[in-house]
Each structure stands twice: as C-alpha cells, then as structure tokens.
Amino acid sequence: MGSQVHGTQHFDQAKRAEIKFSDAAMATVQEMITRYPAGKQKSALLPVLHIAQAEFGGWLSPETMDYVASVLHIKPIEVFEVASFYSMYNLKPVGKCTFEVCQTSSCWLNGAEDIVRYIEKKLNIKVGETTKDGMFTLKVAECLGSCGTAPMLQCGASFHENLTFEKVDNLIEKYKNENRLKSYTDLDYQNTL
C-alpha cells in the first residue's frame, strides 16, 4: 500500500496507522461528499486536502495523502498528483506561520521586494526557509487579489494589506505570542477593501 505514494518523503506504516480525522473534520468531509453526484466523491479532493493539511501539522505527508485516498476511495497516486500540482499544498514541513508575500506587478510597484528583504533580515532566514524554532516560514507568492491594497502578504486565511515595516513587526510579535499553527482556515482578517 505505502509504496504507491511516490513522494519525496519516506512512507512510515506506523505513522500512517495513527492518522485519523477528528470527528468534526470527518463530519465536514462527509458533508462535502454529498455535494457531488453519487460516485463523484473524488471532486471533494481539493477541499479535503485543505482540511487534512490543517489537521495534520500544516503539510501533507505521504501518510496523510494515503489516508485521504482511503477516505475518498481513490488511489494514493490520484491524491499525490493533485497535491503536487497546486501551490497551497505543502509536501514538506513548514513553520507554524507561513508568510506568503505577493511579488507580482502591483505589489512590486508598491515595494513588495523591500518587504521580503525586511522579513528575511528580521527573521534571519531566506525565502523558502523556516526559522530554527519552527515558528515562521517565508515564501513568495503570485498575485493574491489584493493589488489595490499592495503590498500584501497572506498568512493562514488572513490577508495583511497595505504593509509597512511596522505592520510586519507587529504581525511577527502577535504570531509569536499566539504560538500556534495558522492553517488556511485561520482568519484574523481586517477588511481593508
């Protein structure tokens, strides 16, 4: 079974046995499957992967993907194919808070590059890296639909817009204090549109 997942990570049978959705997550998953015609439960794969990523540490291990495949009655390779295609799924561990700084045109015109450099310096990591304490990962992203409130970064479900160095400082401070996984459902969004 395990050898069917061709990820970059080792497959651990013992870890796989431990993976199970919480009752609440499982209920959501079951409800999602009813949104599609009978036999088309694979359609729920993308949302279910988001839930899995939030439940199991912020990334999709081969064991997690194998588990998702079993829940949706599809092949593990079908899960890996999808997980490796879309940019929101992490196939390697990340920090509790992942900062995704938009670097496309409108954000670049408004100083996104300076924001990236500032965070790199402040957290003492480069883009693509995670801080030693496992708290922050820094990534760059392409246009996130906040071009009018640029520069911006996304963390969890929240968009932090019209960024300044000071705002970045406050964000880092706040998240350090909260000290928990910011999954894609995690929202402390301030409406600025």
Binding site: N90, R117, V127, G128, G134
Partner: peptide, 15 residues
C-alpha cells in the same frame, strides 16, 4: 543589485 525570488512551494526545507 536586484535580487529575485522564486516561489518554492513544496521545496520548503526546515532550517
């Protein structure tokens, strides 16, 4: 002096 970045999805290493 311009640096540029690549989106490193799925390539993120824990330092």
């Amino acid at each position: 002096d311009v640096k540029h970045y690549f989106r490193l999805n799925n390539l993120v290493e824990t330092a």
